[in-house]
């Protein structure tokens, strides 16, 4: 087997960990991801007791060879895009850790957890106010959008940051 690049080695390790101990409601398509380490499909279930209980979503992760120094491109795909104030109807997610606040200490797992917590903390199911304009004008790649983060997002970022710290400590 050819020598793996640093990004491939890290993705391989993350994939193993995520398949072995997936967070509640999160499953990774392991066969697809191990065939192509740069494109992962992750199935997510709405957390019971929240507005998204019983719903199923599909997330797509795309990685460049600069990962983890470069953030992954994360979008909702498939028929069911969650109706949420930070999720556009084309699947793009407004979440600061996916662009400006990305850090190599974050991982696929912590990104999934932050999306789960973003959905779970939702009080009212509605699209972002600028949805129709954004969907018409945006680039295909959400990382090319200059996001303007609201207070809500930074709140999520801090909870997740603490979360990932506690995970690292436990390990």
């Amino acid at each position: 087997m050819a020598a793996m690049s640093p990004s491939e080695r890290r993705l391989q390790k993350e994939l193993m960990a995520l398949m072995k101990e997936p967070p509640a409601g999160v499953t990774v398509d392991g066969d697809q991801a191990s065939q192509n380490l740069t494109l992962w499909t992750i199935h997510m279930e709405g957390v019971p007791g929240t507005l998204y209980e019983g719903e199923k979503f599909v997330l797509q992760f795309k990685f460049t060879n600069k990962y983890p120094f470069d953030s992954p491109e994360v979008t909702f795909v498939g028929n069911n895009i969650p109706v949420h104030p930070h999720v556009y109807s084309n699947g793009h997610i407004c979440l600061s850790i996916l662009t400006d606040d990305w850090s190599p200490a974050l991982s696929v797992q912590s990104v999934c957890l932050s999306i789960v917590s973003m959905l779970s903390s939702c009080k009212e199911k509605k699209r972002p106010p600028d949805n129709s304009f954004y969907v018409k004008t945006c680039s295909k790649n959400p990382k090319k959008t200059k996001w303007w983060y609201h207070g809500m997002c930074s709140f999520i970022f801090f909870t997740i940051n603490n979360f990932s710290k506690s995970i690292t400590k436990r390990n």
């Binding site: 640093p6 080695r9 993350e14 983890p68 200490a105 690292t168």
Partner: peptide, 10 residues
């Protein structure tokens, strides 16, 4: 290492 998730670098 929290960045490359490895102990050793090649």
């Amino acid at each position: 290492c929290a960045i490359c998730l490895c102990e050793e670098l090649p």
